[in-house]
């Protein structure tokens, strides 16, 4: 290495170092360059369409199970029974927020647009069970029993009407309805137990699948957190389930 190259090396090292130090100095002395967002005190503006925690508006939900089918990680579970007016009634709607990956596929397929992403993104829990959001506060078994009772009443009414007409036109259809009604009555009397072994006529949707899922429910925790002001009213504490959940944990 010649002397010239040697000296060039030194000069280049000094010059490039000085260049770099000028840039760092500029950032060092200019307080406007600080970009830190002091998170708990300051928050960034959340854009529309942000994919935060999921929230299901159970009033408009039709229990069509599209979200359950489309979820790639199976984090949504729902139970439903057919109500007296032939529409599906939700018995439970749970989202395991710890398993959810916020991909938004369920929101896209939701036909009544009841399932939505909120802007909520903060949540802390002590037990894993607390990560399961329950959107229906009432016990699933109670709802099923109630719906079964309603169905039974409706069926009884229909039976009475049918019986009035039966003398004129006996049909195979009424017989089935009557059978269903009897089964429903039995279910209603059995109370919560009915949830596990639902009579075939009444709650066909919440069949074997439902019983499997009810087994999961006690494991799950207590209440959904206040993901946003709009969703705050939906999930309510479920004291019994909470206790069980804690015991299990």
């Amino acid at each position: 290495m010649g002397l010239k190259a040697y000296m060039n090396d030194i000069v280049e090292a000094v010059v490039t170092t000085a260049k770099g130090m000028r840039i760092t100095a500029r950032y060092g002395v200019d307080p406007r360059e600080e970009v830190t967002l002091q998170y708990p005190e300051e928050r960034w503006e959340i854009p529309e369409g942000y994919r935060g925690f999921l929230h299901n508006d159970i009033k408009t939900c039709t229990a069509c199970t599209m979200c359950v089918k489309t979820c790639p990680v199976d984090c949504i579970s729902l139970e439903s029974v057919r109500g007296a007016d032939k529409r599906m009634v939700l018995a439970s709607y749970d989202i395991n927020i710890g398993r959810c990956m916020y991909c938004g596929l369920c929101v896209e397929v939701c036909p009544p647009k009841s399932l939505k992403h909120t802007s909520g993104y903060e949540m802390a829990s002590v037990t894993r069970g607390e990560l399961i959001l329950h959107f229906i506060a009432e016990d699933a078994a109670e709802i099923k029993a109630r719906v079964a009772r309603q169905v039974a009443e409706a069926a009884a009414k229909a039976e009475a009407q049918a019986a009035a007409k039966a003398a004129e036109v006996p049909s195979s259809g009424t017989a089935e309805v009557a059978k269903a009604a009897e089964a429903a009555k039995a279910g209603a009397q059995a109370g919560p137990k009915a949830a596990e072994v639902p009579p075939s006529g009444t709650a066909e949707a919440a069949g074997a699948q439902a019983s499997a899922k009810t087994a999961e429910v006690p494991l799950s925790g207590t209440k959904a957190p206040d993901v946003s002001s709009e969703s705050a009213k939906a999930p309510v504490v479920e004291p019994k389930a909470a206790k069980e959940g804690e015991n299990k944990e």
Binding site: E12, A13, T17, K19
Partner: peptide, 8 residues
């Protein structure tokens, strides 16, 4: 300027 052409 800061780093790419820095001698080191």
């Amino acid at each position: 300027n800061l780093i790419s052409y820095n001698k080191i």
